[in-house]
Amino acid sequence: TGYYDVLGVKPDASDNELKKAYRKMALKFHPDKNPDGAEQFKQISQAYEVLSDEKKRQIYDQ
């Protein structure tokens, strides 16, 4: 599964769309709200870390 799929956004998503999707998913799977969501929360955080950084995103998109 790709990072875009993890966040539920298209590859041409804007920074604002990425942030909005990340916040929505992070709230849904945060371990405090969803004890079984810890692994998914890590994936969401990693996806956002890469896609929100312009240089990392360019490398990922290659």
Rank of each mutant, 00 (worst) to 15 (best):
V50Y: 07
V50Q: 03
V9A: 05
L7M: 06
Q40S: 06
L27C: 14
A13G: 01
Q58M: 10
R57C: 04
K42E: 08
A21T: 02
F41P: 00
Y22N: 02
Y3A: 03
K24E: 15
A26N: 06
L18M: 04
Q46K: 13
D5F: 09
D12A: 06
L18T: 02
G2C: 15
A26Q: 10
Y60R: 02
A13N: 00
Y22L: 03
V9M: 01
E54Y: 13
G37P: 01
Q46C: 12
V9C: 09
S14E: 05
G2E: 10
Y3R: 00
D36V: 06
K20I: 14
K56M: 07
N16R: 12
D5Q: 11
D32C: 14
Q46M: 13
Q40G: 06
Q62G: 08
G2S: 15
Y48N: 00
N16Y: 13
H30M: 05
K19W: 12
A26G: 05
P31K: 07
D36Y: 07
G8P: 00
Y22M: 06
D15T: 14
R57T: 04
I44F: 02
E54L: 13
N34L: 05
R57K: 05
K28D: 05
E39C: 08
Y48E: 01
N16S: 14
Q58D: 10
K55I: 12
D12E: 06
F29W: 08
D15L: 15
Y60A: 03
D15I: 15
K24N: 13
I59R: 10
Q62I: 10
H30Q: 07
K28Y: 11
A38G: 08
D53K: 09
K10S: 12
G37F: 15
Y60Q: 02
K10H: 10
I44Q: 00
P35W: 04
Y4P: 01
A47P: 00
I44R: 00
V6L: 14
Q46S: 06
G2V: 06
D15Q: 15
V9Y: 00
I59T: 09
L27W: 10
V6A: 06
K33Y: 14
K33T: 13
E39R: 07
R57A: 05
E39P: 06
A21Y: 04
I59K: 08
Q58V: 09
Q46A: 07
L7A: 00
P11G: 03
D15C: 14
Y22H: 03
V50F: 08
D36W: 12
P35M: 04
V50G: 02
V9Q: 01
A13Q: 01
K55A: 11
R23T: 13
M25Y: 04
Q46Y: 10
S14K: 06
Y4F: 07
Y4R: 05
K42W: 09
D53G: 04
A38P: 04
P35Y: 02
R23Y: 14
L27Q: 12
L7Q: 01
L27F: 09
V6R: 06
D32S: 13
V9L: 08
K20L: 13
D61E: 05
D53F: 05
K19N: 06
M25P: 04
R57D: 01
E17G: 02
V50W: 07
D12Q: 05
L51C: 03
S14P: 06
E39S: 07
A47V: 11
S52R: 12
G2A: 13
K55N: 08
Y3M: 03
K24H: 11
D61S: 03
V50E: 03
N16Q: 14
N34M: 07
E39Y: 09
K28F: 07
V6G: 00
N16G: 12
L7G: 01
K28C: 13
Y60N: 05
G37D: 12
S52K: 07
D12H: 06
S52D: 00
K20Y: 08
A21D: 01
E49M: 09
K19T: 11
D15M: 15
A47R: 00
P11T: 12
V6M: 12
Q40P: 06
K42S: 09
S45E: 13
P31C: 11
K20Q: 14
N34Y: 09
I44P: 01
P35C: 09
L7H: 00
S52I: 14
V9W: 01
K33W: 11
Q58N: 09
L7S: 01
Y60W: 03
K55D: 07
L7T: 03
E49T: 10
Y48F: 09
L7E: 04
I44C: 04
V50S: 03
D15P: 15
E17V: 03
